[in-house]
Amino acid sequence: MSDPTISAAPPPVEVRDLTVAYQARPVLWDVDLVVPEGKLMAIVGPNGAGKSTLLKTALGLVPAAAGWVKIFGRPYAEQRHLVAYVPQRGSVDWDFPTNALDVVTMGRYGALGWLRRPGKREREVAMECLRQVGMADFAGRQISQLSGGQQQRVFLARALAQDARLYFMDEPFAGVDATTERAIVELLRGLRAEGKTVVAVHHDLQTVDHYFDEVALLNVRLVAAGPVADAFTHDNLHLTYGGRIGFLAGGPDHGPATSAAD
């Protein structure tokens, strides 16, 4: 890795022959995917397509039945410090007795390691991250008192506090207000400007071409992946959504595919 003559840097995420199953049911089947550095990639697909599972497998939260995922050329366990994770907002208990600043400070826990306690420096970093998502005024607010969009921004601030090179986000835009949506888009573009890579599970097909550079269409198998202009086509959307779930077949006809075809 330290050899300077090796010019081709390993990609942020490389997925090979990945198969994941819950009990006997395959959720991901033989997926190959490379995420290029410095890009924003959306993962789209119908419910049950394995989008979240793909993120969780990359993060070592779900075991692979076959295949592997490498993060910057190495197994995830060796690269944790390079990766930040934004779980689905609904996956945690927002009645937990804590405030926004404390949740963001959790983003520094990985760098601290076992036993070391967060101190003044960690709280300052957390405060700065809250500021970046426009939530500085809510630092002391009990988290159950925040709106859904504000909670999502707290989660994003926590990912910023992880100070990573690669960001995995599970549905960051789900159920947020317009202000938060704008804040997230701005944040994603800021990350890209710094050369960071973002992989986000995304549901709103209408906004894929506005918000993202790359897209992966997933429905247990990988249907297509690549720059939005190439991969986000009507045919691919039909393959991803249309064949399997009939009532969703109307979806791709309204907007995204046509805008992608421009």
């Binding site: 969780k56 993060l59 070592g60 939260l61 366990a77 944790r80 990766v83 994770y85 779980p87 996956s91 945690v92 208990d93 937990f96 804590t98 949740v103 959790m106 826990y109 990985g110 926590r158 992880q162």
Partner: peptide, 10 residues
């Protein structure tokens, strides 16, 4: 609070 993140960061 967040077992997913706990697992992800080790």
């Amino acid at each position: 609070f967040d077992p997913g993140l706990a697992a992800a960061i080790g």
